[in-house]
């Protein structure tokens, strides 16, 4: 019993160290989002540890996806959303400075609930972001396409049909292609919004394993409703409810000893 408590205490310390000591890649301060009179995000304050998987959990409509959209400024597409506060990526406040938005978005790969391959070939999907960055060297593009398709475990499956339309791939393959496409622009953060929700268990497992490997080079912010997935993947967990951050910390502590009734109820219902 003592041993368990010691382990737990160590993990608490480890969790605190993740956020406080390891350099955080992203800091959110006093973030508020309104849609008309509806207060979607309320005074959100958080730090995302570098090269770790941070999992956002919480009931539907609690603001997880809106938070992700604030981070890569896709909220700009929604006139009704009023965003205030600060989001620091490294040291730049992307909400309050004249940010080069396309360049900012290239720092963040986006993986959405269902895959959206571009209406071009598998090859051109991966090459798309590189070309936007101005890469014209065919050999470099070929190298990058192969590298990132290998990185997501898709190369062997598609190497003989790189010029086929990406839409002909299975949903699981399309999701991995979207991940490869995002990785090709060399992001530092991957924003994954329930990326396995439309996938079968095998494809989900492939994506999960990929995420574990990708933390060597990338920071991942994952939104999920699957608690088992959160337990399997999370280095850091943030629980949100009704636009607020209710609890955050290491998965061991949060899932085993929730401090708030809201998280406890969510975990009980989730299981």
């Amino acid at each position: 019993m003592e041993l368990i408590e010691t382990k737990t205490n160590n993990k608490v310390l480890a969790s605190k160290q993740i956020v406080s000591e390891a350099s955080s890649i992203l800091r959110v301060k006093d973030l508020n989002v309104f849609a008309g009179h509806h207060h979607i995000l309320k005074n959100v304050e958080l730090e995302i540890p570098r090269n770790k998987i941070t999992v956002l959990i919480g009931p539907s409509g609690c603001g997880k996806t809106t938070l992700l959209k604030c981070i890569n400024k896709l909220t700009d597409l929604y006139k009704e959303l009023k965003v205030s506060g600060s989001i620091f990526i490294d040291k730049d406040d992307i909400l309050n400075t004249d940010t080069n938005i396309p360049a900012l978005r290239q720092k963040m790969g986006l993986l959405s609930q269902r895959p959206y391959p571009l209406p071009v070939s598998i090859y051109k999907n991966v090459a798309y972001g590189l070309k936007l960055k101005g890469v014209r060297d065919k050999k470099l593009i070929d190298f990058s396409v192969e590298k990132h398709l290998r990185e997501v475990g898709l190369w062997e499956e598609v190497k003989n049909r790189l010029n086929s339309p990406a839409t002909r791939l299975s949903i699981g393959q399309q999701q991995r292609l979207c991940l490869a496409r995002g990785l090709a622009v060399k992001p530092s953060i991957i924003l994954a919004d329930e990326p396995t929700s439309s996938l079968d268990p095998i494809s989900s497992k492939i994506i999960e394993n990929l995420f574990k490997d990708l933390t060597k080079h990338y920071t991942i912010i994952l939104v999920t409703h699957v608690l088992r997935q959160a337990i399997r993947l999370a280095d850091h967990v943030i629980f949100m409810n009704d636009g607020e951050i209710i609890e955050q910390g290491s998965p061991e502590i949060l899932f085993k000893s929730p401090k708030t009734e809201q998280l406890r109820a969510y975990l009980v219902d989730g299981n």
């Binding site: 986006l110 959405s112 269902r114 972001g129 979207c178």
Partner: peptide, 14 residues
Amino acid sequence: PKGLHEASLALGST
């Protein structure tokens, strides 16, 4: 779908 629009913008397209 708006998701395709967002996917393209997220890659750094104008």
